[in-house]
Design a protein around this nucleic acid. Structure first.
Lengths: 219, 219
DNA sequence: ACCTGAACACCGTTCAAGT
DNA sequence: ACCTGAACACCGTTCAAGT
């Protein structure tokens, strides 16, 4: 007597069951297929097999549906940075390099999701403050790496926040140059990684403390 | 007998005269007021006092109208970098710093224009290749600065392109972190400039050649 | 040559009504 | 409690018709 969805693929019951998740999944597919400007609520509903008014039981507006996708993106990005941090304990330089490479790699593999997260669409007034927390958690991983590197005497700089800003700007900037406006256009993942390694080396060279910094060792 | 617009402010003739420029100006105002997602062709036409079909005599589509705005933006950005380059001859480091500060300053003063230029909206297939040339011209200024600095033995790096990529990524990344998603939010122009100076110093420290680079002077 | 008005196929959002 | 259908106010684009 169970009303499961095993023999009627279209609509087992009048009620959907888990429309929230279904809509997010459909919107995610549309996002990567049609781009951030091409995803519409109505097309998402058609893909999910419901009327275009149905989402309003689950999301306050279209912005909240997109917000759910962005939130998951920040979580993924943060998890990759976290893995880079935990992957090589006691080697903050390696951690920072790996986190930077992972950042560029994830973003270029999820271009439209990244554009959604950083393109300015997620700065509306009616967004959940929780989104900001998810984003902060991701960037907190970079903070921890650099803070540990400064504690170990490997990285210099005025304070940790300043170093984080520079390092993050560099990696994020390369990402946006690749994604936005086709200014930089690597042929494939290998070339993308080479560019990421290049800028990571440069920024590491900029924040690394050198033996001749306090006083020349020859003096 | 001249049919000028001196005594009838609304519509001197049935023909507009310079609708092209009028539409660009109206769209630019709407862009900074309503944001990149809020500017519509129909609202632009209403502001210009013409029907919403009129633009199609002057632009192939809405994308070409936005393209005109982006093109002017790249020209302005390039001009600021050019002034930075010409402002202090024989001091590439100062040129690069000034260009970076000008870049961040212009972008944060024209946030929606910058989002239009770099947000990925300007990478459609039906765009004029000329747009790409305007963008390249702007970034050519950075190339010249760094190339001169490398010739003078001030900047290191594998080749000029690599150094340009790193420097430009850093400045562009700070810009996009400030504009996109409100992640970094300076209180005003002064704080914005302080952040820009900070990342410029860091990237300069990363690309600058140091006396201990080829061999230790104490050996 | 340039612009208008009506039309078409979209869009996000709302709301009474259905199940 | 959850979803639908119709409606409203938008949107970009096209095209015959006006000046």
């Amino acid at each position: 007597m169970a009303n499961d969805s095993k023999d009627s693929p279209q609509r087992p019951t009048y009620h959907h069951g888990d429309l929230h998740r279904t809509l997010v999944a459909a919107a995610e597919r549309l996002l990567e297929e049609e781009g951030v400007t091409g995803v519409s609520l109505r097309a998402t509903c058609k893909a999910a097999g419901v009327s275009h008014a149905a989402p309003y039981r689950h999301f306050r507006a279209k912005a909240q549906l997109m917000e759910a996708i962005a939130r998951a993106g920040f979580d993924q990005l943060g998890e990759m940075c976290r893995e880079a941090r935990l992957g090589h304990p006691d080697d903050p330089e390696r951690q920072l390099r790996d986190a930077g490479l992972a950042y560029v790699s994830w973003a270029t593999n999820n271009p439209e999701r990244t554009r959604l997260m950083f393109g300015g669409m997620m700065k509306a007034d009616d967004l959940d403050p929780e989104l900001h927390a998810h984003a902060e958690a991701a960037f907190g991983e970079i903070y921890r790496i650099i803070d540990a590197g400064r504690d170990a005497g490997l990285f210099g700089g005025k304070d940790t926040d300043s170093v984080v800003l520079s390092a993050w700007s560099t990696v994020h900037g390369l990402t946006m140059l690749i994604l936005g406006s086709g200014r930089i256009k690597p042929a494939g993942p290998a070339e993308t990684r080479a560019l990421a390694e290049l800028v990571c080396e440069t920024i590491l060279s900029g924040i690394r403390v050198r033996p001749d910094d306090p006083a020349a060792p020859s003096a």
